[in-house]
């Protein structure tokens, strides 16, 4: 994330590897295209991940990620370069994703309700992978936003706790706590339904 270690190696816009985010943001305030391209290269993936912790449709996630950067660019004059850039961008990503929630793409709960047992088409029998994931999605949907996003970044997308903490503007301990509670909740809710499929 920081320093572009998670972006692709090629930078079609002639990146500025190694420059701190905040310095790049200051240069973006002056309209420097290369600085914006480098920031986008560093954060395009994590912003997709944040959007995916709110939105289920891939097209919505894609649109939300792009909208996040364009909104950030629109508001770049209000960014204080003395403060960390990543949490500022993260807040924009959260707001954009929340605003995009609707009945079509919203995280599961409205349409399906909260009854996980009823949601299982064949309770007590072997469940298909898609069905298991649908159940996981429903449990995640009931979690607080921050917990769901921390879990998504750490457990699903493979960011370290330090990377997740830096993006979200929280401590590593907070990230670990979110992941701990998310795992525990998922196991508690799903293991009775999954029966023999449960794993330690």
């Amino acid at each position: 994330m920081a320093g572009g270690e998670h972006g692709s190696d090629s930078t079609p816009e002639g990146g500025i590897p190694g420059a701190p985010d905040e310095l790049l943001a200051r240069r973006v305030q002056r309209g420097e295209r290369e600085a914006f391209a480098e920031l986008a290269r560093r954060y395009l993936r994590p912003v997709h991940a944040v959007a995916a912790s709110f939105l289920s449709e891939p097209a919505d996630v894609e649109d939300a990620a792009q909208e996040t950067f364009l909104r950030a660019l629109e508001a770049i004059a209000s960014f204080d370069p003395d403060r960390p850039f990543a949490p500022w961008l993260y807040q924009i990503a959260r707001n954009v994703a929340r605003n995009r929630l609707d009945h079509r793409s919203r995280w599961r709960t409205e349409a399906a309700g909260d009854d996980l047992a009823a949601a299982s088409p064949n309770p007590g029998t072997t469940m298909e992978r898609a069905e298991i994931r649908a159940l996981v999605d429903r449990v995640l949907a009931r979690m607080p936003d921050q917990r769901r996003t921390a879990f998504r970044l750490f457990e699903v997308e493979g960011y370290t706790s330090a990377e997740t903490a830096r993006l979200m503007g929280v401590s590593e301990g907070t990230v670990r706590s979110h992941v701990h509670h998310a795992r525990r909740t998922l196991r508690r809710e799903l293991e009775p339904l999954l029966g023999g499929e449960e794993r330690r």
Binding site: S10, R33, F36, A49, L70, V136, V156, G158
Partner: peptide, 29 residues
């Protein structure tokens, strides 16, 4: 197998696809 597929993985993925997204974004900006 419980987890959703990653959409913005920290590592890996298709570099060409991410480059395309980056180019589209910079053009839009």
């Amino acid at each position: 197998e419980w987890l959703p597929d990653p959409v913005g993985p920290a590592r890996g993925g298709d570099p060409e696809e991410w480059d395309r997204r980056l180019r589209d974004l910079v053009s839009a900006a």
